[in-house]
Design a protein around this nucleic acid. Sequence first.
RNA 1: GGAGCGGGACAGGUGGCUGCUCCCUGUUAAUACAGGGGGAGGAAAGUCCGAGCUCCGCAGGGCAAGGUGGUCGCUAACGGCGACUGGGGGUGACCCUAAGGAAAGUGCCACAGAAAAUAGACCGCCUGACGGUGUUGUCAGGUAAGGGUGAAACGGCGAGGUAAGAGCUCACCGCUCCGGCGGUGACGUCGGAGGCACGGCAAACCCCACCUGGAGCAAGAUCGAAUAGGGGGACGUAAAGGGGAGUAAUCCUCUUGAUAGAGUGGCCCGCUCAAUGUCCCCGGGUCAGAUCGCUAGAGCCGUAUGGCAACAUCCGGUCGAGAGAAAUGGUCGCCACUGGAAGUUACCGGAACAGAACUCGGCUUAUGGCCCACUCCAGCA
RNA 2: GCGGGAGUAGCGCAGUGGUAGCGUAGGAGCUUCCCAAGCUCUUGGUCGCGGGUUCGAAUCCCGUCUCCCGCU
Length: 125
Amino acid sequence: MGCLLVPARSISRLVRKIEVDAVFRTGRKAVTGAMVLFLLKNNVQPAAAVRYAIRVPKKYGTAVERNRVKRIFREAISLYGKSWMGYDMVVFPRPQVKGAKMQDIAAYLQEAFSGVTGRGTQERS
RNA sequence: GGAGCGGGACAGGUGGCUGCUCCCUGUUAAUACAGGGGGAGGAAAGUCCGAGCUCCGCAGGGCAAGGUGGUCGCUAACGGCGACUGGGGGUGACCCUAAGGAAAGUGCCACAGAAAAUAGACCGCCUGACGGUGUUGUCAGGUAAGGGUGAAACGGCGAGGUAAGAGCUCACCGCUCCGGCGGUGACGUCGGAGGCACGGCAAACCCCACCUGGAGCAAGAUCGAAUAGGGGGACGUAAAGGGGAGUAAUCCUCUUGAUAGAGUGGCCCGCUCAAUGUCCCCGGGUCAGAUCGCUAGAGCCGUAUGGCAACAUCCGGUCGAGAGAAAUGGUCGCCACUGGAAGUUACCGGAACAGAACUCGGCUUAUGGCCCACUCCAGCA
RNA sequence: GCGGGAGUAGCGCAGUGGUAGCGUAGGAGCUUCCCAAGCUCUUGGUCGCGGGUUCGAAUCCCGUCUCCCGCU
């Protein structure tokens, strides 16, 4: 990277375990009925990028249900993710969101996101 | 109509808009973009078996360990499948069956009961002797028919026979042995003889027959960057010994003693290794590096032939996912199915089990409605 | 992907073919001025579930479910 003419994708996955753990340790946390959300300001190039990871524990349900919830969250982030650029996020869906539609999930995400950013800027250590 | 039994195919369809991944074509230095095409299952699941493939290795002979167990076939193979036999269950369609050996040996059979396996005799029955004279007691002997216990009692039932009884004798049944016939065979059937001997458990140890080298695609192969191309120690030709059974592992016993090179992933024989060896300790073991393996295969569909069938063969057609923290989606309509519901419309819902990870053959489990054949019961004609 | 283990009373465990037990917890009583401790009595079980072998299964065999652990 480093070539300014080539914009990286504005929405990408958080893949590396170190980066996910960094969001865990130092990010801010929001708990709603639908999910647990961790947020951390990133400093990747370009500045307006969002990176995300979705973690679904095995206790959530069968492989079909886990795949399903990941797809719906991924779709919601790719459609509405431009409104929370500049953050790394890690999402834990909770079992209450089984059967929800994509629009509901997007609304839940927006609610959780504003719950974090509206509450001040103190970082956890 | 109800209940049941066996089998088969399927796994909602279709159209906008918009994503993901792989392949092909075109433009392009590359990134990228455009067009076209493919994109979960009958169980993808559990990982219970069997194979292919790969590496380690050499697998040769045995011991041990594990598995399988009616017969004949099918299959690459199997603990799978088909047909048949024996046994069991069901009124029936049909279903279940680890179904070799108990006279090779060892072990177990609680409680109850006299006795639980070289038979034996509690209550009884019968005969004789003695005491007593009504009813019986003791001793000696003969019995195993009857009683009672138990899951199971040393053939069953009936008749003859007898003091009472008894395969003691006879008929039938069972059992064992012999022979004939049918069948490739398991086995069936017929005849004769014996005169009852041989209780059950082998999903108890075991015996017999057959099978099994180990690990697994995170196998393994190639390439790159970075780092290191290391340090220390042990082993040094092979080693416990004697006696008995055995080729040996192994078992029994005595003594010394604290060790015996490594591999053959339990052990022995055998085999391989002479330092560029083997083992141990410290250090290192990172970039979730890239590519291949990676999907055309014991493949699928159709016809014909052989076979009761499983299946096999000929011919023709066909290509149907290949990701990498892991794609195969999201959303909005319409039409079918179905519930609220009792009639149409409108409205609100529901729509099973479940997600590929090297690939096949099975088994098992989960699960939705549909179709076909058959059985039993009830009603009507 | 591969391998191992467990499931028995509310809890922790024993029981390897023959009436399912121990500790603790619960209940009642004794003791004490009262409590604790102690003593006596007592309640409580589909032995995870479904089949099979056996006269008889928590135990043996097969299938299945849940939980835990290890290797790479």
